[in-house]
């Protein structure tokens, strides 16, 4: 999306530059009326070829250039034949024969290069999105990594017979907070909350940020009881979390919902497991 805007900007810039150029030349031709009109027509044709090649691409631009050269060359020859043997062809007239295809080529090549660069950037951006496994703000895993980790932990838990729990933490009314305090403050809030979560959990607990207002913890080797202890602890800290708003140093208070689920014996599917924890969120009415 961003790249497409860049492309539009480049295209616009080039069209504008060309337009300015055409206007200047036109003004010069109008002011100095002794300049031959033929030259102006050739100039206009050449500009048209540049625009065409940029718009239609290299090959089609070259085809346009080829046709233009042929007609112009034919015109010159016809003139030379009908005006008799004494007709001299001037080099100013010949130059255009080279200029037409050359302009088409340069402009078409430019258009092709830009197009390729934009396509390549788009591809890189897409590839990068696929490769990214971390949440930029918090350094926690993102949703994609969360599911990969969860599947792995489910397999481990099955194999070693150890319990496995997950915990979802949702910040209440996050959108409203954001509309009041703005992105920067909310970003600070998220970073602070993530720090608190990291402080109050074990290293081996895998932490993820699933949505902008939702965190998840994978608690390996932990049953529901253990998870509840952690929940108690976290609720305490998070409810009393006070974050100052940069300007007027107001203190913000948040409320949270926390959902817990323990892996059941026959449960294998990571998505279904997470859904159960999701449903628990609804029942956590404080």
């Amino acid at each position: 999306m961003e790249m497409r805007n860049t492309k539009r900007l480049i295209d616009g810039g080039i069209i504008l530059t060309l337009t300015i150029f055409v206007i200047i030349v036109t003004v010069i031709f109008i002011s100095y009326q002794q300049l031959p009109i033929n030259t102006y027509i050739l100039f206009a044709l050449n500009t048209l070829l540049i625009a065409l090649a940029y718009w239609l691409g290299l090959v089609r631009g070259l085809i346009a250039g080829m046709v233009a050269v042929f007609f112009y060359g034919t015109y010159l020859m016809y003139g030379a034949v009908t005006k008799g043997p004494m007709m001299e062809i001037s080099y100013q007239q010949i130059v255009w024969l080279f200029l037409f295809p050359f302009s088409s080529y340069i402009s078409g090549k430019l258009s092709e290069t830009i197009k390729e660069a934009v396509e390549r950037s788009e591809k890189y951006i897409k590839d990068m999105e696929e490769l990214v496994l971390l949440d930029k703000e918090t350094g926690f895993s993102n949703a994609k990594k969360f599911y990969l980790d969860l599947s792995e932990e489910i397999s481990k838990s099955k194999r070693y017979g150890t319990p496995l729990s997950i915990m979802l933490i949702k910040i209440q009314y996050f959108d409203e907070l954001r509309s009041i305090y703005g992105d920067t403050v909310c970003s600070n809030v998220i970073i602070n909350i993530s720090k608190k979560i990291a402080e109050h959990t074990r290293d081996i607990d895998k932490k993820a940020r699933l949505e902008k207002d939702k965190f998840a913890l994978i608690l390996s080797n932990t049953d529901e009881k253990g998870a509840l202890v952690l929940k108690e602890r976290l609720t305490n800290f998070l409810e009393n979390l006070e974050i100052s708003d940069g300007k007027d140093r107001r203190q913000l208070k948040f409320s949270f919902k926390i959902g817990i689920a323990q892996l059941e014996d026959k449960e294998k599917d990571a998505i279904a497991f997470k859904e159960r924890a999701e449903r628990e969120l609804e029942y956590d009415v404080g």
């Binding site: 060359g73 034919t74 020859m77 034949v81 043997p85 010949i94 024969l97």
Partner: peptide, 15 residues
């Protein structure tokens, strides 16, 4: 008629 041939030659080359 050298003029037209000169043009033709260049035209042929450019084409």
């Amino acid at each position: 008629l050298q003029g037209p041939f000169f043009v033709l030659w260049i035209l042929a080359y450019v084409l």
